[in-house]
Amino acid sequence: MSIGLTVNGRDVALNADPVTPLLDVLRNYLDLKGTRYGCGLEQCGTCMVLIDGEAAYSCAREIGSVAGCSVVTIEGLGTPQHPHRLQTAFLEEQAGQCGYCLSGIIISAKALLDRNPAPSRADIVAALDKHLCRCGTHTRIIAAVQKAALMGEVA
């Protein structure tokens, strides 16, 4: 059975078992490695993607349940050549140590800025609270999201 959805603006038709996790489809069928496996339990946030504009875990989400949806991954935000302002802000703030948490966090930040272009610090903390970062980069990550919000105002 073929499952149709939009990924990063492209229509894709997949021959996949409908119970396959969206995360596996992104990583292994579509070679989008920026969405990361951390727990498979919806507890850490490394697998976060946008589904119809909302930040959502992809690790336990069955592909069959997103048929017809629009999915955006970190690769859909920007590239090293043409980074999204969030990616630019994270680089400018050097907001990362190992970096494993970052792609998921940037996705949640994108969902936040889309619905609230001028978030307070508390808004940012609330939006990111489902994400873990073992390296303790939290302070810089918050600063990077604040910076990206400001870049959006002038853009």
């Binding site: 920026g34 090293p80 680089l91 494993y100």
Partner: peptide, 22 residues
């Protein structure tokens, strides 16, 4: 000098880790 890290760009944009090697 505060030189930025070159490896971070991959980590905020896509494949960057051993997990991503194909």
């Amino acid at each position: 000098q505060p030189v930025p890290r070159r490896d971070l760009i991959a980590k905020v944009s896509g494949a960057a880790f051993i997990h991503d090697i194909v």
